[in-house]
């Protein structure tokens, strides 16, 4: 019965990634290699991030919200953006359209993130007899994260790969990218600084991820138009 629950949580956490891959043209154009490479880049980025965090951050005894530490953490969080930049620009792919490239990178990125952050807690926790909503919420969080990663990858590809984009949209793109990139810090602030409970935080994440996805989709199609 508890293994059942574990499988449910796994489906919720990793199912959307698979569905996204198979449902969109990504599968038709065989972009799995790109995703795997992006995941490997994520792994490298995560290690760099860990080293940075371990070097610059003090271990806080309590769970309180320290603005200075959080600022530092947010800055280190931009290592992610650097990693994404590397994945988007430096990785050589077979001729794969920009359209699919950012999706494949975002997908690999989100999948690696889910595997690293959520698989172990799931395995440890969700198989136990004790029932909590935490793992279901965590699965929902993974969904939000997938959407956010793809949005960020979309914005990144707009910033770095597309040359002829409307000048008026550039600040908006950058602003959105910054917002998306600082999402982890924002949620951390909500959870610790304002004391929000986990369900509320997850709800917020889901909502913002959908909003950001919509905005970046609009931006992307707006940039698409003049070129086509």
């Amino acid at each position: 019965m508890t293994l059942f629950h574990f499988f449910n949580c796994v489906i919720l956490t990793f199912g959307p990634h698979a569905v996204y891959y198979s449902a969109t043209p990504l599968s038709e154009y065989d972009t799995l290699g790109t995703s795997v490479k992006a995941a490997l880049v994520y792994l490298g980025t995560a290690i760099v991030k860990l080293v940075c965090l371990a070097t610059f951050l003090k271990v806080s005894e309590n769970d309180s919200f320290d603005p200075y530490q959080e600022l530092l953490k947010a800055l280190i969080g931009f290592v992610d953006v650097a990693g994404l930049y590397f994945a988007l620009t430096q990785l050589t792919h077979r001729n794969i359209s920009q359209n699919h490239k950012f999706q494949a990178v975002g997908l690999g990125w989100a999948f690696a993130d889910s595997v690293l952050h959520r698989l172990a807690p799931l395995w440890v926790g969700a198989r136990g007899l004790e029932f909590t909503w935490d793992y279901i919420l965590q699965g929902l969080e993974a969904n939000a994260n997938l959407v956010l990663s793809i949005s960020l990858a979309a914005l990144g590809s707009l910033m770095w790969l597309r040359k002829n984009k409307p000048k008026t949209l550039i600040p908006i793109i950058y602003a959105c990218a910054i917002i998306v990139a600082t999402m982890p810090s924002i949620t951390s602030y909500l959870r610790r600084g304002l004391g929000w409970h986990f369900p509320k935080v997850v709800g917020f994440e889901l909502f913002t991820s959908l909003v950001m996805a919509f905005i970046s989709w609009q931006l992307f199609s707006a940039c698409q138009r003049p070129s086509s």
């Binding site: 019965m1 508890t2 059942f4 629950h5 499988f7 449910n8 489906i11 919720l12 199912g15 959307p16 569905v19 996204y20 198979s22 449902a23 969109t24 136990g128 007899l129 004790e130 029932f131 909590t132 279901i136």
Partner: peptide, 27 residues
């Protein structure tokens, strides 16, 4: 331990399955 029932898990599976199908169709 506070435990969830089998019916809850079945229901959850159903909900998740339909969620994934809807997501797939939507995409």
């Amino acid at each position: 331990y506070q435990v969830a029932s089998v019916t809850f898990d079945l229901l959850l599976l159903l909900v998740l399955g339909s969620y994934l199908i809807v997501l797939f169709s939507f995409l």
